[in-house]
């Protein structure tokens, strides 16, 4: 691994309410360099919470603590809200699952990209528009001038996701947090969007945190995989070594997947063990 862009040690996220305390994330540690790192787990495992904790976008009732959460040499937990705002969007970008909900429905997609450009660069509208068109072309949109004038409801899911990626690439971030970016997309479109992210990591040296529930996909797409269960990382593996997983939970998840050409009478189901939720060791 190259020098880490993001280094996290013993991240904890706790939701406090008058009735109960919920430890959503417990002692999660990882580094992300110029590579694709997956965080996988089932719903409720805390994988999305980790992504949001890194950019400190959690509700005020969430308490975030960590021994270390360093990004490009800055401790993210000690930054003022103002400084943090500079990091969000400018240095760390997020892509969410469904572009339908992340784009403004009453503004053309091109104007939204232009607006994003002008937030980060003080240039006249005309120049920003040219940059926006170039940006759309860079994410493999074939006819940017036509797409520019479309409204979000007029573009397909794959196109919408490319527009989101074009928008968040403008400030040239060094880390992308992608939370289920392809789950709403068809298989062939999914591959095309992944290829764009793949190129960004390779050509621009960006780090990618890829939050997903799709084991099959991260196995072939990501360099490293963290498997989360009940708020903890229970196992960390290289993507291509996922098949050699040691932890019963990882093995159970892999076994429950139907696979093409692999006919079994019944799919194996998870036999959840209490020991999987026991506290894991802290990392120095």
């Amino acid at each position: 691994m190259t020098d880490p862009i993001l280094s996290v040690r013993n991240l904890n996220v706790t939701y406090l309410s008058s009735r109960a305390t919920l430890n959503a994330v417990r002692n999660v540690s990882f580094d992300i360099g110029r590579e694709k790192v997956a965080i996988v787990g089932e719903s409720g495992s805390g994988k999305s919470t980790v992504g949001r904790a890194v950019v400190r976008l959690l509700t005020p009732s969430a308490k975030i603590t960590a021994d270390r959460m360093d990004f490009e040499g800055k401790n993210l937990l000690s930054l003022s809200e103002r400084k943090m705002q500079d990091v969000r969007g400018r240095r760390i970008s997020m892509i969410l699952q469904d572009p339908k909900y992340s784009l403004n429905p009453v503004v053309t997609v091109g104007e939204q990209v232009t607006e994003a450009y002008r937030v980060h660069n003080k240039v006249p509208h005309k120049e920003a528009k040219e940059r926006a068109l170039a940006q759309l072309a860079s994410v493999q949109i074939r006819d940017p001038a036509h797409v520019y004038d479309l409204y979000p409801h007029e573009v397909s899911g794959g196109m919408g996701q490319r527009i989101m990626i074009a928008m968040m690439l403008i400030p040239e971030p060094s880390l992308i947090i992608a939370d289920e970016p392809t789950s709403a997309l068809d298989v062939t479109v999914k591959l095309q969007v992944l290829a764009i992210l793949d190129d960004l990591v390779r050509d621009r040296g960006i780090g990618l945190m890829f939050i997903s529930h799709d084991l099959n996909l991260v196995q072939s797409f990501c360099d490293r995989v963290l498997i989360m269960y009940a708020g903890q990382v229970v196992e960390e593996l290289r993507g291509d070594e996922l098949g050699d997983a040691k932890h019963d939970y990882t093995k159970g998840l892999l076994a429950s997947l139907p696979r093409i050409g692999d006919r079994r009478g019944r799919l194996s189901v998870l036999d959840r063990k209490d020991s999987w939720s026991m506290p894991v060791e802290k990392r120095p």
Partner: peptide, 13 residues
């Protein structure tokens, strides 16, 4: 989730 999917597919069978 995939683990739940396995349970439901088995139920269908």
């Amino acid at each position: 989730d995939v683990s739940i999917q396995a349970e439901i597919l088995n139920l269908f069978s």
